[in-house]
Design a protein around this nucleic acid. Structure first.
Length: 99
DNA sequence: CGTGTGACGCGGG
DNA sequence: CCCCGCGCCACAC
């Protein structure tokens, strides 16, 4: 595992319950602003093993990136259980919930 | 070693 | 808001 990956795991773990962050933001904090895609890949392949709060990472538009039937419902349910509110378009107010 | 694939992001229509 | 294109990048074939 490289330094970037280690940093991504560390940064994701810092996002507190009731807050969210974005793939791009985690990538920035980890030293590579252009690696948002890698962050998403790390989440999908290592969330279990490294016990990551994967559900707290959404896209830059404030929307869940998983597809309906592909995890969307689960992620949304967990976030709502943590107090995150979604508008009728499935968008969360990043100004309010970003970490 | 090319080619296709995303849990991405940004701009534009 | 939706849909596209383009750039980006590790990874599976």
């Amino acid at each position: 595992m490289n330094d970037f990956t280690r940093s991504v795991i560390e940064q994701i773990r810092k996002v507190p319950k009731g807050k969210v962050s974005t793939y791009g933001r985690i990538a920035e904090l980890s030293g590579n602003p252009r690696a948002a895609r890698q962050v998403s890949r790390i989440l999908s392949s290592m969330s279990r093993k490294y016990n990551l709060p994967w559900h707290r990472i959404i896209n830059s538009q404030g929307r869940i990136s998983l597809k309906p039937g592909g995890g969307y419902e689960e992620q949304r349910a967990i976030l709502e259980a943590e107090g995150i509110e979604f508008d009728l378009y499935g968008t969360v107010d990043l100004k309010r919930y970003i970490y």
